[in-house]
Amino acid sequence: MNQGRNLFRTLVLILGFAFLYIPIVSLIVYSFNSSRLVTVWGGFSTKWYGALLRNDQILNAAMLSLKVAAISATLAVVLGTLAGLVLARFGPFKGRTLLSGLTTAPLVMPEVITGLSLLLLFVTMEQIIGWPAGRGMTTIIISHITLTMAFVTVVVQSRLSQMDDSLEEAAMDLGARPHKVFFLITLPIIAPALMSGWLLAFTLSLDDLVITSFVAGPGSSTLPMVIFSKVRLGVSPDINALATILVAIVAIGVIVAGFTMSRQQKQRERDAQMALAANQQMIESVKKG
């Protein structure tokens, strides 16, 4: 019976992962297809990679997307950390419910609504105060910050709620003022969460199509916008090549992260042994007197 359950588990996992990964694998395989007809195999070729590298439109869009993603992720981490701190540490205050609503709503808000409302805001602001003049990188960055800071807030808030708050009290008890407590204790301890928050924000920004389409001006097409306008017309092998490059970058990132993690794991095991040995020493010193 136990075996039956194991078999069921394995089967579920195989089917589940097949569903998740077959599309990605197919993208990669066909990126090396020399035929223009993507799904009809015409022999191995890397010509679409060459075509991709000569496509200025895609390269420019990619540059813009990377720039937007880096800037908006950084600012989103700052704002999201503040919001997470307020929600996790400031206790109940007037307007807390509104703030927590405002930070979770963008997580699920359909992007067409967010995009439309941001565009209308920018247009109105331009009418009233003359800024932002036209739409382009600035408006895209502001929109992406608004979207992605919600995700950072959730990450930071949950990390802070796991953190023992007597650590912060201890620092204060030892004479550190609140802002020093934040920079010397809280920030270093939640730093890994900020890192993953940044990566999440970066990826979301790099990937966003709908909101960006609303708030981008002429001449500021991001990578997803260019991809969308191409794939709307059907499959196109250079997009497969682009996808393969993206997957490769992510895969390398994951392998590197996995490698460091396993090294840290080993370090932790060594440390645990050290603590065990230390305990032994301790007991002996207690015995001695």
Partner: peptide, 26 residues
């Protein structure tokens, strides 16, 4: 990690992949 991994690659491209799978000569 394997479950969230596809999420780190482009959403748009993952949807695009299904065109190649589902179309008539896909």
């Amino acid at each position: 990690l394997l479950i969230v991994l596809p999420f780190w690659t482009s959403f748009l491209l993952r949807v695009y992949a299904w065109i190649g799978i589902l179309k008539n000569n896909g």
